[in-house]
Nucleic acid binder design. Structure first.
Lengths: 339, 339
DNA sequence: CTGAAAGCGCTTACAG
DNA sequence: CTGAAAGCGCTTACAG
């Protein structure tokens, strides 16, 4: 049989209210009472019934995290950070994959399990802001990473993609590279993150007075190894080929490295490679990969904190734009002199 | 304001019970009443309060899925299947990562959110059965993939690892290979799955009257690309080197393929490679990877069904050993003649 | 500082 | 086939 508050109260010879006070760390309980109740709590092994608590308080302490794909290491690592950050706030995270498909994203926002979560951390690929607005009584939402198309009025947490991409490009410039290619250029205007990164790239080139060569901008279908490998092959067939490549994520870069290796092109002496995300494998591949490392912990921490704000303290505050830091991690794929 | 059953009842001019009957698809409601109530339900946009329902029924319809690492594509894909299978039973899945560490696994089983889930799908790496027994009032558990050490008394769902490994090895034998190496051999006895796969490998060799050469059995620290790559390098330094490699998962095989490519060893003509898991990338890498494809959908379906059984129908039934099917998927890494 | 009591929204015997 | 009512376990004004 389950141990209820009432059982503990009887055991300790106090009222239910008093036990509840102790359980919830209420301030005004005499030490003697607290101690006695705590003992009863321990002896009986009391565990609160979360459903009852939720029913009473109207909060579930559950938040959902909706991501395109857990397969992608970046998202898997980010999810892990979010789970930990949420734990610190006493929140449990429900992870769900949207596959970046609009229909699934819509499903998530309108609540696959309605009235079930207190808030939503959302990394949308396809959804537009209008879609979000239309849904009646959707839970508080904080956008993570991807920004909804124009006019968004929800908190948004991300790295400063423009600045980060500029930094990455600048790094290649500083190595003396002149023909700096991009793998992962935005295939369409809806690819918001890619557009921002491209903007950063352009700024760096402008500052270095290097002319933009559109031939060097390669879009991809997906952000996977295979796409990176294929794009790199295309680039190597150019005359002259690039002397550096900025890949818009590490997976693409890993694919590019593979092609370079196959073709016997030396990295970094002939072609320097830089990625974005700093996934685990980038440390272990050979050559190890120079990359932009977004502060995933900060990203998760800011997002959860913003959501908590919206959930309880200030549901109607003006939407915030929050940036987590990043750093450039130099590894073998850009270390060393030009050939 | 939230719409309650009571509001709908008032709106439709019936009692709360009747509305509840309609919501829960109770059989004995006249069509006229059902229709009228349904209309009120729709008009008011009623959504049941799940906390209240849980409090009343004692069930949350939440199950947890505890996996070592979501980063690993196999687990990510499996998780996706589990989520879908659970949906069919009206269950929501709480995914949590244990990192394969005993401490985290213990945490999960004893309930990170106690009294919160109806059941647990669990893929343990470190936990022993005794640990499970010791935990008072742990939820119904079904083991997925990994088997707890001896004496387990919980349902277990997996592919027949011995049979699958035997099939894989036999395939290499049929190609005429004689020196068949293994990457991913069990580093210790606790690596249960690896031990089973090794057993299958041995059986296939025995049947083919090929002598076991322990030099060809390479253990790994982790089941990642880098480990596969390193192991392959070791194998190529043998004299003579192997003419085929059975990798105990696809990630290892992907790493092995990379090394083979770097060293200019032809696949499959000089060395044939086979993996295990059939992760997405195996279809897209070059050469594409022959592999054992466990029926992940069946695995997830069986696991969820078994858990549902234990949760409601037959909590104390004798533990079952359930096997999902597998098939050998032939791709480029083994297709073609020997050099 | 502590107690008695109401009520969160639902399901479910129990009547009828 | 439908209704009135109890009760799941908790929190929280309200008294004292």
């Amino acid at each position: 049989m389950r141990v209820r508050l009432k059982d503990v109260a009887d055991h300790a010879g106090v009222s239910v209210k008093t036990v509840s006070n102790v359980v919830n760390n209420w301030e005004y309980v005499t030490d003697a009472t607290r101690e006695r109740v705590q003992k009863a709590l321990d002896e009986l092994g009391y565990r609160p019934n979360l459903s009852a608590r939720s029913l009473r308080t109207g909060r579930t302490n559950l938040i959902a995290l909706a991501l395109p794909r857990l397969h992608e290491p970046y998202f898997a690592e980010l999810a892990d950070c979010v789970v930990r950050a949420a734990e610190d706030h006493g929140l449990t995270v429900l992870i769900s994959q949207t596959d970046g498909r609009r229909e699934r994203e819509q499903q998530v926002v309108s609540g696959f399990r309605p009235q079930f979560i207190d808030g939503l951390l959302f990394s949308p690929l396809a959804l537009e802001w209008d879609d979000l607005e239309e849904i009646p009584g959707h839970p508080p939402v904080v956008l993570l990473g991807e920004r909804l198309a124009a006019g968004g009025a929800a908190d948004h947490v991300a790295v400063d993609n423009v600045a980060a991409a500029q930094r990455a490009t600048q790094h290649l410039v500083e190595l003396g590279r002149k023909r700096i290619a991009v793998i992962g250029a935005p295939p369409s205007k809806t690819a918001r993150t890619a557009s921002l990164r491209l903007e950063g790239y352009k700024r760096a080139l402008r500052k270095a007075r290097i002319r933009l060569d559109k031939q060097l901008l390669l879009p991809v279908n997906q952000l996977h190894r295979a796409d990176g490998a294929a794009a790199m092959a295309t680039l190597l067939d150019l005359a002259p080929p690039p002397d550096a490549v900025f890949c818009f994520n590490d997976l693409l870069a890993l694919g590019a490295l593979r092609t370079l290796q196959e073709r016997g092109v030396a990295v970094p002496s002939e072609v320097a490679v830089i990625g974005f995300d700093d996934i685990e494998e980038s440390r272990f591949c050979s050559p190890s990969l120079t990359t932009i490392s977004p502060d995933k912990k900060a990203l998760a921490g800011l997002a959860v904190a913003a959501l908590v704000q919206r959930m309880s303290v200030a549901p109607d505050a003006a939407p915030q734009e929050l940036h987590a830091g990043f750093e450039l991690v130099e590894r073998e794929s850009t270390m060393g002199r030009r050939a």
